[in-house]
Design a protein around this nucleic acid. Structure first.
Lengths: 203, 203
DNA sequence: GTCTATAAGAAGATAGAC
DNA sequence: GTCTATCTTCTTATAGAC
């Protein structure tokens, strides 16, 4: 495997565990199996490694956003996807979102890193908010626009529906980032939440 | 003012801005108006300052938890407090919780610091979860136990009600920690959420 | 309790051989 | 591309005068 890629990968793992400032280039090098000075043949500084991780994550996010129409540009394009959705399908979609966020190897490490670094500069704040708040909310709002439009659910304000649907997912996700052992409990509560949500907005 | 106290205060401000590892004792000293070595007459190490902040915050939390019966021990003690609650009062309580969390000087700085340090060790994870997830959830569950018991609201599962009520507050709070300029928007959405929540659980 | 001077060590980064 | 050796700077902490 490409050494440049492996450096990024091991660095992300370490940054996610300890935070950027508490990781030393020697540790990254050791994880890769080389000595610290060798890193500088691939990246010009420690910050450069961090930036590379950021760039890759932005690329992945954009690719995913495009695939899911999370930009809201082409909101009704996949109306069919939600058109005939049942309570069970809604549960599956919420749990799927949660599980993807929680278990995707790269995404999970990146989220923890960003959680720790989010206050360091405005770009990181923006990125966090886009990926874990505004992005999901606008996607959910789009979904509820379709579901209420098709009279599958009944609600006046799709933005309120979106936050009521998504905020518990978000909170349980960040809970499990701290306490992976509470995943079962979180999943149970999440399912109950979504079933209740569905009842709350029944037509 | 007590120098020992001022060191703790300035250190918390800096830790909340940059994270523990990115703050140097010389910066803390400068903020206090003394030289770095003088700090060591008050605290034996940088970590010792951090621990003192933690201890103070735990004390404050315990005092507040006792005042609000957030332990769930004496759940029905202040039933009267919620007994005749109206929609507007529920809005006030949600917004009050949000605003208190957001604007309390000490609490706000402490939350940001804990957000950055939460993965560093299990004690900090526990503390974060207790203060911002389990504590508020158990308090809200107690409240909804009373409100459903008195038939002011209708719901089968107080834990689901608690997470549906509180998770949006939590998410908007962490959003405003990153983007204080979005407070107005957050407050508007929060109010709409609570009014909708009230309708969802109307008797 | 605060200062100056300084020890002791850690950490990022470079030089140059292989 | 990787290594050893090393530079430079930063950072925590101590010593000891005032």
């Amino acid at each position: 495997m490409n050494t440049k890629q492996r450096i990024m990968d091991e660095a992300l793992t370490l940054f996610a565990e300890k935070g950027y400032g508490n990781v030393f280039v020697a540790q990254i090098a050791e994880a890769v199996g080389i000595k610290a000075p060798s890193l500088y043949k691939h990246y010009k500084s420690k910050q450069d490694i961090f930036n590379a991780i950021l760039d890759e994550m932005k690329q992945r996010y954009d690719a995913q956003a495009e695939a899911l129409n999370m930009n809201g540009n082409d909101a009704t394009a996949d109306a069919q996807m939600f058109a005939g959705i049942s309570e069970d399908a809604l549960v599956q979609m919420g749990i799927g979102l949660f599980s993807y966020f929680l278990h995707d190897e790269y995404a999970g490490r990146f989220r923890k890193m960003l959680t720790m670094e989010q206050f360091r500069n405005p770009e990181l704040s923006q990125l966090y908010t886009q990926q874990y708040v505004d992005g999901p909310l606008s996607y959910q709002a789009m979904m509820f626009t379709i579901l209420t439009g098709e009279a599958i659910l009944a609600g006046d304000d799709v933005n309120v529906m979106a936050i009521q649907f998504y905020a518990p997912i978000y909170m349980l996700l960040t809970l499990c980032d701290r306490h992976p052992e509470r995943e079962v409990e979180a999943l149970r509560l999440l399912e109950q939440h979504i079933r209740q949500f569905n009842r709350n907005y029944q037509v």
